[in-house]
Every structure is written in structure tokens, then in C-alpha cells.
Nucleic acid binder design. Structure first.
Lengths: 218, 218
DNA sequence: CTTGTTACTCACCGCTCGGTGACAGATTGG
DNA sequence: CCAATCTGTCACCGAGCGGTGAGTAACAAG
């Protein structure tokens, strides 16, 4: 029995020569990558110690040792979110000069829409934020909020909103709309009766978004 | 040991004379109520057969028998959602005549905002919709969508949107904004940097919403 | 080679989950 | 009266979860 098991073990491990080395840094990275991949692909529902360890191909004990458990790992994901800003800032303003606050917000809204559509991890985090209120998700939420605020700040330049308009409240509504539309469409290809499947459908959404922004800021 | 257990059992059951009767209809209702309560209060995360049975004070076997499992129970909740429409339709138009499509949409938006804020079950369902794509939530989502569409239809009357505007897309954005703002605020008292705690804060949100609607529809 | 330290694995714990089969007591029909 | 049916309870299954303590293999220093 023991002999047979040993034989099986050898046979199983033979075609896997690329065995991970004894390398703490690499293992930590593998764990973090697995966590992000798992969260992005499977969502927060089945996100747990066992699943991450399985995904990283190591023992869960290492997650406790290197990250202090799931909480610490989630925090590490949050820290990684800071890089989101850098990746999403285009070098130029898309060939147009942002003369007015309306120009800026229209561009920000469309950029954010596309960025969120293209980023499954960020989408899962947003969904998590509106579904749970644990300490974990609160820190993650804070990191995302900071990253987003920083992104907007860097894009804003010196433009200021028109007087007489509560831009913070209006912008919150606009960004809320984008987030919910993208989340809803990702899972069900529609939002509030509006089908969002083809590029043509999304054009409609963009147009509506522009119209809303322009309606408020001119 | 067995004798001691029996004694304990008698002692524990003694002060509970209000034993539920043998009454299938009442038990079914108790299960459904418990399910709705649980979903509304705890969210979909810990929503399961065991939890519902515990909440209803009966054995989970009865849920399988009477509803055919969790799926059937969720479907029953969805069927119940139809009553949402009736509860949320005010008899009058709030003392104002809805002369324009803008009037209508402003009123609908504000009504929907308040209704969602006041309805924890509906909020949990919306959060569920953007977090999971199981068959369960898809049916629930469909029921909610139908209820909402019917509600809007009955409020709309004979008003039609202005030409040249993709009202369906714009309205989807507006309703998406409301849903996300309410969800986010419920769990974290803020949305996209906008604090939403006091009635004063919510006034700001309402004002912004009105401004957006009026900006589009005049 | 010996001795520690570091990186990593394994076996096991208690618990809850969804799901099922067997059974007990009340009710009803003949 | 017995028998069937309905309502409800209970014990149990395998599986997966988060978490932990003990052990093992690689490496560096002496």
C-alpha cells in the first residue's frame, strides 16, 4: 500500500518538473496573484483561504504565515489597487482640450465606464462593497475610493465646477450610475430593461451618459 | 444520560406552551416570512436552507416538501414581489399635475429613491443581482424587473418622452444611479465620497438627482 | 558534518453546510 | 376499529470550510 502510493506519487510528479522553488518572495507573489485572479474570476462568494491556497498551489498555512490570514491578504490586494490609478491615466487628453468642467466630466465618465468594463477585479470589489459590510471589504473599499479620488484629482487639473451646482453630489450620482450599469450588464447583459450586449448597445449607454453630463454641466 | 436528557427536554419545553399547530398553510407562510426576513436582514450571503429552517422554527425537511428546496422558496419570494407595485403606487400624484415627461421622471426618480431606501428586502435583492448569476437570482431579478416596469408603466399614464432622446437608455442610467447610491449608502453611509447619513445629506442627493433629470428632460 | 533557521507540507480539529431516509404523532376515511 | 394519509421531527451522511500543531526538506553558518 505505502509502496503503491509512493509509485503513484512519483508518476504524478514526474511530468511536473517546474516545481516551485524555495523562494518566499515568489510564493508571496503567487499567493497574491492567485487571490486577485480568484476574486476577479469567481467573485467574493467562494473567496476563502482554501480556495486561494489551491489556486496558488501551496498550503494555506503559508497564507497565515505571510499575510496573517485572509484579512491581511485582502489588505495586500487593496494596496495593489493603488497601481490602478497609474494604469488608467492616459498621457494626453485624447486629442481634445478640456476647456470646461463639462468637457472634463464627460471625458472622465466615459473613461471610467470603459475602465470598469475592462477590469473584472474592480467590478467584483464594487459588487462586494454593496453586498457586505465586513472589516475586510471596508478596507478594500477605502483603498478603491482613494485610488479613484486620486485618479479624478490628477485628471481634473485646474478646472472647477460651475457655481450653484453641488458637483460632488451630482458626480456621485453619475459615478454610481456607471458602476451599477456596468455591474448589472456584466452579469445579465442588461440594466433596467436596457439591453447591453453589443458595442452598439454600449454606444447608446455612452450617449445617454454624455447627455446627462451635458445636461447638468452644459 | 438518556433519562437526564429527557428531564432537560421536559424542562425546556415546559415554558413554551404556544406550540405551533399542525397546519400546513401556516407553516408555509412561516417559512416564507422567515425567508424574506432573513434575506432582508442578513443578506444573501448566509441565506440557506438551514438558516431559513432555523428562522422559521421548523425542520428544513418541510422546506423541501412544501417548496421543493431553496429554489422554489426563492421563486415564491419573487412571486411575492408583485405586491411591491401595489404598495408603492400613491393614489394621487402628490398634489401636482404631471404636465411634462420631466415632471414625471423627476417624481418617479424621487419616489423610487425613497421606496428603495425603505425596503431592505428589495435592496438585498438588487445587491444579489449584481453579485451572482445563478438561476435563483436570475428568476428573482426577472420578477423584480417586471414589478418595476409595471410600476413605471402605471405611473407613466399617457406621457411620452421628448423626441431625439433615447429615454430608455437615459432612464436606465438614472435608475442605476439611484440603486447604486442607495445600496452603497446603506452599507457605508456614503457613495463615491459623498456622505449620506443625515436627512440633510439625502436632500443633497435628491437635489442632484432632480438636477440631472431636469438637465436631460427640461 | 552538525546545528539552526527558513520555507513548506501534512494531518487533523470542530463546525456548518445541503441533502436524505426513517420514524412519530395527529387526522381522516372506511 | 383499523388503515392510510398528512404534518412534523430526528439522526445521519459526505463535503467543504477556517484554523492549528507537528513534522519535513532545503539551505546557510560554524
Amino acid at each position: 500500500m505505502a509502496v503503491a502510493n509512493a509509485a503513484v506519487k512519483i508518476l504524478m510528479e514526474a511530468p511536473v518538473p517546474e516545481k516551485r522553488m524555495r523562494n518566499r518572495a515568489a510564493t508571496e507573489q503567487a499567493i497574491l496573484d492567485a487571490a486577485k485572479r480568484l476574486l476577479a474570476e469567481e467573485g467574493f462568494q467562494n473567496f476563502g483561504i482554501n480556495a486561494v491556497a489551491r489556486g496558488a498551489g501551496c498550503d494555506k498555512q503559508l497564507i497565515y504565515r505571510y499575510y496573517g490570514g485572509l484579512d491581511g491578504l485582502v489588505e495586500a490586494i487593496g494596496a495593489d489597487l493603488g497601481s490602478w490609478v497609474k494604469d488608467r491615466i492616459p498621457d494626453d487628453t485624447g486629442g481634445m482640450f478640456l476647456l470646461t468642467y463639462g468637457d472634463l466630466m464627460e471625458r472622465l465618465a466615459l473613461l471610467f465606464l470603459d475602465a470598469l468594463r475592462a477590469d473584472p477585479l474592480m467590478r467584483r470589489i464594487v459588487a462586494w462593497e454593496v453586498s457586505e459590510n465586513s472589516e475586510q471589504v471596508r478596507r478594500l473599499s477605502e483603498a478603491r475610493s482613494k485610488a479613484l479620488a486620486g485618479w479624478i484629482e490628477r485628471m481634473r487639473g485646474s478646472l472647477t465646477p460651475p457655481k450653484g451646482i453641488d458637483a460632488q453630489a451630482v458626480n456621485a450620482m453619475i459615478f454610481a450610475a456607471i458602476q451599477h450599469v456596468v455591474l448589472s450588464a456584466t452579469l445579465s447583459n442588461q440594466c433596467a430593461g436596457l439591453v447591453l450586449k453589443t458595442a452598439r448597445d454600449w454606444e447608446k449607454a455612452s450617449t445617454a451618459l454624455k447627455r446627462i453630463v451635458r445636461g447638468v454641466y452644459g
